[in-house]
Simulated assay, not measured.
Amino acid sequence: MWDVVEGAVERAGFSGVVRVDRSGVTEFCAAYGYADRAHGILNTVETQFATASGTKSLTALAVMSLVERGTFELNTTARSLLGNDLPLIADDVTIEHLLAHRSGIGDYLDEDEVGDITDYVMPVSVHELATTEQFLPVLEGHETVSPPGERFAYNNGGYVVLALLAERASGINFHQLVRTLVCEPAGMVDTEFLRSDELPGRAALGYLSVDGLRTNVFHLPVLGNGDGGIYSTAADLSAFWDALFAGRIVSPEHVAEMVRPRSDWPEESRRYGLGFHLRATGDGVWLEGYDAGVSFASLHKPSASITYTVIANWSDGAWPIIKVLDEQLGI
């Protein structure tokens, strides 16, 4: 099996880390390619990689942790915390609607309208997006698409709104909330929001293509937020799944609610819960991220006690490896 994975890695020009755990034992873990091509710095199994929208699951867990603490409820309306901000968000949109991508709000980054993944899509200079409140001008001006609860529509802006609501309700910076409510109880010691213009030595640069030196530094917010951008390692992501299903982040009852299918997503052959992607059938649950210079998935299948993580530092690097793992592991 691992020969098949290695073959896929070679054919795809994969750059990143692949890790597979079964029943708590690491069966495969290997790093490939360069974290910094210009300086010849190799990726290692300890390299920190951007995860793009994989962050949404951590945002959802931070929000659910605040629900457990009584800071707000799933049926709390966004309007009750937004005040006069973002007036185009309907008054009856709730936190649960936002978590489930069923809010119907307009999206600042509608993926159905994005062309090439390497297009420059941010509507403001990316250096202006370092705090949650700085996203307000980006989130404004998008008309409601559908009544809340009516239908599923994947929505990046909704998860930035969730970060804003969490910050305002708790009085705590969103990045700190994710660290203290999710990463620390999960033992994710190398998972953090990093500025793209001051990456530490262990973090991989994100490249736009399989070769070349052009990075994604002008494509994404300088500091990630509720909808994407946290950096992590393959080891931390394995620790995440163990902690999640052991109830160390939020209670098992709330975990069950978050991985309960809320919506069918037939266009992508999957379902969706509250912050988690779900297989169309079976119990596979996963995090996924795709952006300029980033491709990532981390999947856990409880019934088979299998976890895999594929995390790459170029835009399309992860998908061929994920396909092979799904086939070889019978997922």
Results as ranks from 00 to 15, higher is better:
266 P>F: 00
217 V>H: 04
46 E>R: 03
10 E>V: 03
133 E>D: 08
257 E>F: 06
247 G>P: 04
278 L>K: 10
59 T>R: 00
293 G>I: 03
41 I>D: 15
145 V>N: 06
284 G>I: 00
156 N>T: 12
77 T>I: 11
203 A>M: 04
270 R>N: 13
60 A>C: 11
202 R>I: 06
155 N>L: 00
266 P>G: 11
139 L>I: 02
298 S>F: 02
39 H>E: 15
184 E>Q: 14
135 F>A: 08
22 R>Q: 10
255 V>D: 14
67 V>P: 15
59 T>A: 06
20 V>P: 15
82 L>R: 06
57 S>Y: 02
114 V>N: 13
318 A>W: 02
299 L>N: 11
254 H>V: 09
48 Q>G: 15
190 D>A: 05
150 E>T: 06
269 S>C: 02
2 W>M: 06
165 L>T: 10
123 P>R: 00
92 D>M: 03
125 S>Q: 12
270 R>D: 09
85 D>L: 01
79 R>M: 07
14 F>M: 03
314 W>Y: 12
197 D>S: 05
185 P>R: 00
57 S>T: 02
254 H>C: 12
122 M>H: 07
175 H>R: 04
242 D>C: 04
157 G>S: 08
201 G>W: 05
131 T>M: 01
109 L>K: 05
102 R>L: 01
74 L>I: 07
65 S>Y: 10
180 T>K: 01
55 T>E: 11
319 W>R: 07
237 L>M: 12
30 A>C: 11
254 H>I: 05
229 G>A: 04
146 S>K: 03
317 G>L: 02
243 A>L: 10
273 G>Y: 03
219 H>Q: 10
88 L>V: 04
3 D>N: 09
81 L>Q: 07
57 S>W: 00
8 A>Q: 10
89 I>N: 13
301 K>T: 13
85 D>Y: 01
320 P>K: 00
128 E>M: 09
259 V>R: 02
26 T>K: 03
262 R>G: 06
185 P>H: 01
326 D>L: 02
48 Q>Y: 07
61 L>Q: 08
258 M>E: 14
106 G>S: 09
234 A>W: 08
129 L>M: 08
256 A>D: 15
269 S>T: 00
110 D>T: 04
130 A>M: 11
321 I>F: 13
174 F>Q: 09
280 A>K: 11
97 H>T: 08
97 H>M: 01
304 A>G: 11
198 E>C: 11
54 G>T: 01
254 H>S: 11
95 I>Y: 03
153 A>D: 15
174 F>M: 05
274 L>C: 07
290 Y>A: 14
204 A>M: 05
323 K>I: 11
4 V>S: 13
199 L>A: 13
11 R>Y: 08
74 L>Q: 12
78 A>W: 02
134 Q>C: 12
134 Q>N: 14
305 S>Y: 01
56 K>F: 06
143 E>D: 14
88 L>R: 03
160 V>L: 01
44 T>A: 09
314 W>M: 08
126 V>N: 06
238 S>W: 02
307 T>D: 07
259 V>W: 15
181 L>W: 05
210 V>C: 07
168 R>C: 09
212 G>V: 10
313 N>R: 02
264 D>H: 07
143 E>A: 05
330 G>T: 06
287 L>E: 06
95 I>R: 03
97 H>R: 10
199 L>S: 10
26 T>I: 08
222 V>Q: 13
207 Y>I: 02
30 A>K: 14
